[in-house]
Amino acid sequence: MRFVLRRLGFYLVAAWAALTLNFFLPRLMPGDPASALFARFAGRVSPEALQALRETFGLTDASIFSQYVTYLRHVLTGEFGISVAYFPTPVSTVIGTGLFWTIFLAGSAVLVSFTLGTLLGILAAWRRRGWVDTWLPSTFVFLGAFPYFWLAMVALYVFGFLLGWFPLGHAYGDDLAPGFNLTFLTDVARHAALPIATVVIATLGGWLLTMRNTMIGVLGSDYVNLARAKGLTPSRVVLRYAARNALLPSVTGFGMALGYVLGGSLLTEIVFSYPGQGYLLVQAVRNQDYPLMQGIFLVITLAVLGANWLVDLVYVWLDPRTREAS
């Protein structure tokens, strides 16, 4: 329990750091580009949007401290200002439209990649120097060297453009109305298959190698030898005795990899014109929509921090030592 609370405290500090960074970044920006930006925006956007931008950049009469307090209050109530690119829609609404798709895409990709990679890692360590152990690690290390979004481009070109097996983009067909029925769900799955597959291929190698290397160490330890000597079946020794302990470093890495995988999945979304945060992020960058950019940064950061805390809970469940310490 104490472990869980301490980690919660850490994530709160991290969240506060991200919030503060987000607040000060535009204010630290050199003065001239800010006014140049306003000059450019002056003709294009309405006075209200300009006012919202001014507040983002801290170009108001209020003291920096009171600005900070206002900012924190706004963020806590989910108010991120008004989007420039999608004016006059509030940033929170714009983000809301893409949040589900990003979590769906990145979430399923991470889960599939972790599960598959870990299982293959167990297999590689179990059948050391076997077929899996010889070929898969180096293949996936090579595939992992490609930028995610480039793999996505190739997959889209080959399976979407040349072979026509999968749709070329978006989350579901234009002719379908979103609903909880089989036609719609299959269509969503068909659209998500390629993006998920590319992220899985790019990240699988890491899980495989981590699990394989830890497993090799654990399989040589005394308690595993004892389990073998007792005459337990090999599958029981490997899965119940060795794998459970070998899983710990992977679980620790899981939290840390989340942010990284999410970053790659954002870029993958762009290639597939998938309507998630990545797509919004590009719109924000192209239109210099700073409020939207910052809103996306905050939402993604908070999501990753939350997910990390969940991973910690899993860790406590897996590793009795963290429970005994309290």
Partner: peptide, 10 residues
């Protein structure tokens, strides 16, 4: 723990 790519973009 702060995701790198979004931070880098901002």
């Amino acid at each position: 723990v702060i995701p790198g790519l979004p931070l880098a973009i901002v």
